[in-house]
Amino acid sequence: MSDGKNDGPLEAAQAALAAEHAAVYGYGVAGGRVGSKRRAEATAAFHAHRARRDALVRTVRDLGGEPVASDAAYALPFAVPDAAAAVRLAAVLEDRVGYVYSDLVRAADGSLRRSAADALREAAVRAARWRGSGVPFPGLAERAGAKAGTDARAGAATAH
């Protein structure tokens, strides 16, 4: 994938779709290990990402593309043996989704830009809830991590 600076709306929408596929997978893992007190939160996030994923499939088609398919499985950024790791994973998933939505905000206009901005905001809020704190510029902090070698664009840390 490119760095997002010159991506058009279709390429940025495809990247967001790939990240949503990975987030849905990641929440399947996190939701199974998160503590009972936060299970409803994980379930709500899972459903939110499924809805965004489904909307992006339509968006990609509307933009003239063939939607990127989900992988059968995704490599997680770290082992998730317990509830604490599941919470960390959920925050990472949201950060990574926020990253690709910041690219889509930059590449799109009109209603697609508004939708991407809404998705970025929602991901930032969920990440802050999972982490217990926010970041100053959601979507940009993840870009800095990507430059340091983190594969932030790939959603749940897949190597496509």
Rank of each mutant, 00 (worst) to 15 (best):
A55G: 10
L112M: 09
E66S: 14
S115C: 01
G35I: 09
D71E: 13
D71A: 14
S102W: 08
G98E: 02
V100E: 10
V34W: 03
T59Q: 14
V60S: 11
A108Q: 07
F78V: 02
A116N: 07
R88F: 01
R61E: 15
V29C: 06
E94K: 07
T59F: 11
A55I: 00
G32L: 08
L93T: 09
G31W: 10
V105D: 06
R61W: 03
G98Y: 04
P77A: 05
E66Y: 03
A45S: 15
D103T: 04
F46W: 13
A116W: 12
P77S: 07
G35W: 01
D62F: 00
G64C: 03
L89K: 04
A51I: 04
A84K: 14
A40S: 15
G64N: 03
E94I: 00
L93F: 09
G64D: 08
Y74C: 02
E41H: 02
V57P: 07
T43A: 13
T43N: 12
A84T: 13
V105S: 05
S115I: 01
P77I: 07
R39M: 01
L112W: 09
V105T: 09
V97I: 03
S111M: 07
L56G: 12
Y74N: 02
R50I: 05
D71M: 11
E94N: 01
E41K: 15
Y99C: 08
L93A: 04
R38E: 12
R38I: 00
R53F: 05
A51M: 09
R50Y: 04
A73N: 06
D109E: 13
A90C: 03
A51K: 15
K37M: 05
R88K: 14
D95T: 03
A73C: 00
R38D: 14
A116C: 10
S111D: 14
A44E: 15
R61P: 10
V100K: 09
L63T: 13
L120D: 01
R106F: 02
E94Y: 04
S36T: 14
S111T: 14
A45P: 14
A55N: 10
V68G: 05
V34H: 03
A73W: 04
D118I: 00
L120I: 13
R61S: 12
A91R: 11
V97T: 12
A84V: 08
S102I: 01
G31D: 10
R96A: 06
V29Y: 13
R39P: 00
A73L: 00
F78Q: 08
R121C: 05
E41N: 08
L76D: 05
D95G: 10
